[in-house]
Structures are given as C-alpha cells and as structure tokens.
Amino acid sequence: MTTAIEVKNINKQFVLRHTRSIKEAIVWLAKGRKGDLSEKFHALHDVSLEIGQGEAVALLGFNGSGKSTLLKHISGVMVPDNGTVRTRGRVAGLIEVGAGFHHDLSGRDNVYLNGAILGMTEEQIKERFDSIVEFAEIGKFIDTEVKFYSSGMYLRLAFSVAVHTDPEVFLVDEILAVGDEPFQRKCIAKIQELAAEGKTLVVVSHDLDLVSRICDRGILLDRGNVTFDGPIEQAVATLRA
C-alpha cells in the first residue's frame, strides 16, 4: 500500500504563560508567588505513524490528548519542534471554521481566495464555482461579506470549497458539530463518498458512533502519546472502557 501520510518521531511543546504583561509579572512577584511565570506543555511525545493511501483513520482521545495538534501538523498548519511529517498528494479539509477566509471579503471572493490557498487554479475554481455555491446552500448570500455570516454559513462554504478541491488527503476536525443536522448528514454523506472513491481520510471527533461508520482504523492518543493503533471497533471499545 502506498503511504499517504508519514509522521516520524515528532515532538511539540507549547509555552503556557501565567502572566500576560510586565505589570502582571511584577504583581505576581510582589505577592510572593513562587514558581516560574511560564511552563512548557508537551503536546506531542515522539509520535510516529503511517497512513496508507485510501485509509479512513480516526484520531481519538479525550480533551488535551493531542489529536487536534497532530491533525494540524499533518495539514501543515503547525511545524514540529523535531521530527518529520510527509504527505502525498493534495491535502485539504476543515481544521477551524473560516480558516483561510478574509472577513472583509464577500463569499464569492473567499471562494476564490480559499480555493487558491488549497491549490486550485483560477480556471478550476470557475468551473466548480456553481457546484460549490449549490452545495453550500448560501446562494443569495454569496456576495455578502463573510463577517456577517453565521458560524453555520461559514462551515457550509468552507466545507464546500474543501471537498471541491478533489483532495487526495482529506482532514476533518470536530468542526462538523457546528452545522445544523441536515447539513451534518450532507457532510457525512460526502465524506463517505470520498472514502468510497479511495481518498485518504483523517477524522478527529468525539462522536464515536460517527467515526465507527466512517473509519476502519482508530489511533488513540493520551497526553501526546499514541496508546493504541488498530481496528476502529477496538479503538472505540478501548476509549469507552
């Protein structure tokens, strides 16, 4: 099986600051508080994994386990402190609502902007524009500035642009929870369609029933460590236990 995603020995630390300004730091010290004004949080510990082309994989774990951080490394939004991440083919997906959108531009302009960011040419965007708008169901608002959009409208347009890039690797964070139920069903159907076409899927979700339907493999993370990697049914059972 051709490898679509290779993550090798990546580590990621964040600095958690207890004060936000020089004034707060002085007050902290003046009150005799002990300890550092900041501390390091190790989000990912020496994580390695491979995902084959056409696999549908769920990244599972409780809040703070590192699954969204790992997904952002795969997408290229974050760079590891050390280690490597390699992907094969076009990567697209939804990591955050409205990521890649400019608030002062219209929905129409943002389709072109976001499409270009995701690797589409202007000609490809023109060809797929009507389909993008139709899937998003925001036709009459397409020329409205997106700063006036609801989170649900953001989601519909962002998801529609992403799936119309025809990606080889599609990434989805917990973002599906933002949309209304009919659109969630529509998104899930589209994700299942991508899986049936042999696209590589990586999904982060707390909806264990949903990932059981979409994915065939589950990777569990706990405090930045991979603790299980295997069949989705076993991964879900382990997490629930």
Score class of each variant (00 low, 15 high):
residue 82 N to I: 10
residue 114 N to H: 06
residue 8 K to I: 12
residue 235 A to G: 03
residue 124 Q to Y: 10
residue 49 L to I: 06
residue 14 F to R: 06
residue 216 D to S: 15
residue 3 T to L: 08
residue 185 R to F: 14
residue 60 L to F: 07
residue 21 S to A: 03
residue 120 M to Y: 06
residue 125 I to V: 15
residue 234 Q to I: 08
residue 98 G to T: 10
residue 80 P to Q: 08
residue 155 L to N: 07
residue 79 V to E: 13
residue 70 L to S: 01
residue 164 H to G: 05
residue 110 N to M: 09
residue 148 F to W: 15
residue 126 K to Y: 12
residue 77 V to S: 12
residue 95 I to L: 14
residue 240 R to W: 04
residue 124 Q to S: 12
residue 239 L to C: 05
residue 174 E to D: 14
residue 186 K to L: 02
residue 148 F to V: 14
residue 124 Q to T: 12
residue 25 A to Y: 09
residue 7 V to H: 00
residue 173 D to R: 12
residue 192 Q to P: 02
residue 179 G to D: 01
residue 219 I to D: 04
residue 236 V to D: 01
residue 77 V to G: 12
residue 142 I to P: 01
residue 90 R to P: 00
residue 213 R to T: 07
residue 43 A to V: 08
residue 136 A to H: 04
residue 84 T to M: 12
residue 181 E to K: 13
residue 21 S to R: 09
residue 238 T to I: 11
residue 176 L to W: 08
residue 50 E to M: 05
residue 82 N to M: 10
residue 42 H to C: 10
residue 231 P to G: 08
residue 209 D to V: 14
residue 67 K to W: 10
residue 4 A to K: 00
residue 196 A to D: 13
residue 177 A to K: 13
residue 206 H to V: 02
residue 103 H to N: 12
residue 232 I to A: 02
residue 162 A to I: 14
residue 76 G to F: 11
residue 129 F to R: 04
residue 207 D to F: 08
residue 90 R to S: 02
residue 111 V to C: 07
residue 56 A to D: 01
residue 230 G to H: 03
residue 26 I to H: 08
residue 126 K to C: 14
residue 49 L to D: 04
residue 68 S to P: 02
residue 101 F to I: 02
residue 186 K to P: 00
residue 155 L to I: 14
residue 25 A to Q: 13
residue 141 F to G: 13
residue 28 W to A: 15
residue 230 G to E: 05
residue 70 L to G: 01
residue 31 K to Q: 15
residue 38 S to L: 04
residue 87 T to L: 02
residue 187 C to D: 00
residue 94 L to M: 13
residue 236 V to T: 07
residue 125 I to L: 10
residue 168 E to F: 14
residue 173 D to G: 09
residue 110 N to S: 11
residue 80 P to H: 08
residue 125 I to W: 06
residue 132 I to F: 03
residue 233 E to R: 07
residue 60 L to E: 01
residue 223 R to E: 09
residue 197 E to N: 14
residue 134 E to Y: 06
residue 67 K to S: 04
residue 209 D to P: 07
residue 86 R to H: 11
residue 189 A to E: 13
residue 72 K to F: 13
residue 78 M to D: 12
residue 193 E to W: 06
residue 187 C to E: 01
residue 187 C to Y: 00
residue 196 A to Y: 03
residue 32 G to Q: 04
